[in-house]
Write a protein that binds this DNA or RNA. Sequence first.
DNA 1: CACTGCGGGCGGA
DNA 2: TCCGCCCGCAGTG
Length: 504
Amino acid sequence: MPADALQQADPVCSYGMQPNWDIKDPQMPQEPAFFDHFQEWPDGYVRFIYSSDERKAQRHLSGWAMRNTNNHHGHILKKSCLGVVVCAGACALPGGSRLQLRPAICDKARLKQHKKSCPSCHSALELIPCRGHSGYPVTNFWQLDGNAIFFQAKGVHDHPRPESKSETEARRSAIKRQMASFYQPQKKRIREPEAEEDQDSSGHFSHIPPLENHEEFDIITDTSFLVPGQPCPSFPNSGEATCDLATFQGDKMPPFQKSPNPRIYLPRPPCSYELAGPGYTNSSPYSTLHKDATSIPADTDWVHLNALPYNVSSHSSYEKTFDFTSRQHGWTPALGISGLGERTDHGQFQAVASLPYYNPELPCRYLTTAPPGAPALQTVITTTSQVSCQAYQPPALKHSDNVQEVKRLSGCNCAPGDTQMSVCPEALSPPATVTRAASPLGPLPLKIPGDCRAIRPTWAFPQESASSRTDGAESWDVCLSGLGRAISYSDRVGPIFSYNGEDF
DNA sequence: CACTGCGGGCGGA
DNA sequence: TCCGCCCGCAGTG
């Protein structure tokens, strides 16, 4: 274990688990012995102390879309979570993923964003508000005191992660750079098939603009995210799909780069997708994704968290932290503990193994029951928006008392055609295996416990889990169960599917 | 143009 | 009083 990891672990425990201070205390601890490693996705009632030298802390950054909130305390910066923007139609992207956009922080920009439609099904976009703090948005407090930046979070995010800002920015820049080299060559290829597709009433798809235009290019990528139930004329098969994506992201987005956010829901088996490999062959029905993936590039605004589980295996998943148990509602990322290293990873893995993911009876691989250690807080969300996702909703879902949850699950939800994927190490690890897993077993009835949320863990302390993750650490949430569950991982594992910010 | 931070002000608990 | 929230303003990139 790297020294860094060790350093990180202890502080986390000390501050995260046993904080002896509160953001509102008149006097903060002086000269803390340890500084926590910056947590990009703090979740739960956690507290951290960052070094005043930590840039991200200085900027009060967070993976969550946090907006400034006036708390009438000049010395304490308060921010509240905006939630996540999803497709109101709850359409499932190929691969069963859902769009999870980062809400614009600016009210004006957010309104503008809301006017956009889902690139996949053209349904309206819906903002899932955060209600993780007693029905109110999760709040984060920041206070600079001496050489330390005190951070305190209140509430448990009850929604999927939006794309993190840092990731978005990183991806955009990377894409732009790569665009130049990748673009031209692909131009022709992309046009042919896609050109025919006219999904966008506005004509985005019908008209394939010069690839030089990044935005346009992004739009094209939209086609790659066809809803399973929809016809996919333009990408009938994967044969053509060469792994452009690999090329695309290859150098820029190393699969394992820290990527805080991506959550990948893997309702269906991942296509065998090889990021690194240039022409992989894919027989998967979803191969189109690959193809699409190839063209995916740039849209940073859209995040298909679930995107493609590519290379899940490549991660040597065993080692990755599959934190099925983790976090509150299952949306939270697993503890990816880059820093905690063996201890955590191992533990998590074991935990995972013990979980019935593969159990058909528990399609929602997230356990239905919260572990003892799980945070008691359960957001009671009676969101109005419901569901569109019912289309895919299995009967079992209906029983959910929490509409919101169900709806959200749709993310996990699977499209009708989802095949069940047994989640076992084997499946996740080797690409080949994954591919095999993808083989259609045929749609399975989706049974999702009413409270199909990820379970909260075995880890007794949310803080710990949160803290244990290093920033951007590789953490995975794998929701494999039958249909719906998702794998979310923080690593920059696979291609990140996003639509161009232009449209959204 | 969007993000960010600040602060006034309002209303509800 | 506290809190959530809206709004506008200003600085920044």
